[in-house]
Design a binder for these strands. Structure first.
Lengths: 226, 226
DNA sequence: ACGGCATATATGCAAAATGGATATTAGAGT
DNA sequence: ACTCTAATATCCATTTTGCATATATGCCGT
């Protein structure tokens, strides 16, 4: 704003607009990058899959609204959360003008599989090229989220947000490979990740591993290193 | 959206929200990274500086609205334009709830100095640490834009959007130095930029240069390589 | 016409980062 | 004690990078 605008805004002068948040909550399960989606009960797009979302409440910031959705769906107050992009094409929702601020969230697989098990309408869909068509422009939103995730992988500790408290270097490498979709060189990966300073070794090692047990690592940085 | 929402939205059920776009239009003049700002005539913040912006029209996409503002202020239909971030804190505008989608625009200095000369209320302010306080949360928006610009400098041809049709490698280097705020090594810079493939030499050279004339280069990529 | 000026451009070299192969280590089971 | 297999360490070739030095160019004074 700040245009040569009227002294006081008169909402009635402008057509009604709704502002919502949509959440692209991703994780890596069984080596596959996956997104939390919800089966819609209502029209439009009743029966198809959509991203979880909500209206932005009167006193809420956008991020608070996104975190509220995160809490409602995944019962998780923690976890990586950052604004992704805002989608506002006039016809993206057939009912009325809806401007949606998409948020990008990451969570360890275990949290998500738990959440999905508890709720009938929630499921984890493969992130890339899902066959089931998504409601609204949600397919495009997910595409953008994948791009963002890939783009950040080398510059920010996003992969750590997808792993539990303790993890091995192999776990971390598998997450990276799932995200970029191809194998990486093991020694180079280990070296590169170790001197980012993002992780630190605990003395602990795996047990019952049949062969040489790997060391457990943990995050050395707070999750909010946006 | 896509929440367990009512079958039809009833705008009256939700408090009114206005959606606007704000434009961070940057350039490099005389070695200084600068932002186009506008002196506000109306309350609130009458007399202080603010980013140019506008309401989003009923049939407009967000990007169309941003490009319209670009056209209104700088009379330029071309140029780098990308969505930056959406600001929606409940109290960011004292009058009513305003969600503003900030856009990030780049333009050659000449276009901007022209535009500023024509309009009484427009001026180019230094981007970093402007002393004059800005209206609303616009200082934070500019900070974020600078961050984005710096972050993209090595990965996208953003610097080319700040230069005219023809430019020398020295011009290009000066733009880079203005953006990151420190000197860079000349041969390394030349080598690095040349093999990005973003620029190509024209045979032409500078004239009246007192000493060895530099070759003119031009963009080898479209401006829209977001 | 010629040499000097100051900058553009090219070349060269050492240091660092990277990719990738190979060797060594560790725990569990036979 | 030996074997299995993956974790971890070492090593080397290649590429990238920072930086110093050399050469080229067009103007300008003499």
């Amino acid at each position: 704003m700040s245009e040569a605008a009227p002294e006081l805004y008169n909402p009635a002068d402008y057509p009604p607009v709704a502002v919502t948040v949509d959440l692209v909550l991703m994780t890596v399960v069984e080596g596959r990058l996956s997104v939390l989606v919800q089966r819609r009960g209502q029209s439009p797009f009743a029966g198809s899959l959509a991203l979880p979302g909500s209206f932005v409440g009167p006193g809420e910031t956008l991020e608070q609204a996104a975190r509220r959705v995160l809490m409602e769906k995944a019962s998780m107050a923690e976890g990586w959360l950052e604004q992704l992009y805002t989608f506002g094409d006039p016809d993206r929702d057939p009912r009325m003008r809806v401007v949606s601020v998409a948020y990008f969230a990451l969570m360890p697989a275990a949290c998500l599989t738990d959440a999905v098990a508890k709720r009938e309408d929630l499921l984890l869909a493969p992130a890339a090229g899902s066959q089931a068509p998504l409601a609204f422009d949600h397919a495009a939103i997910i595409e953008l989220a994948i791009e963002r995730l890939r783009g950040k992988l080398d510059y920010a500790p996003v992969a750590l947000a997808l792993l539990p408290e303790l993890f091995t270097l192999r776990d971390l490498q598998e997450v990276h490979e799932a995200i970029i979709g191809k194998a990486v060189n093991k020694p180079a990966f280990r070296r590169r990740l170790l001197d980012t300073g993002w992780i630190e070794g605990t003395g602990q090692r795996e047990a019952q591993t049949a062969f040489r047990p790997a060391e457990f690592y943990r995050r050395a940085v707070p999750d909010s290193s946006l």
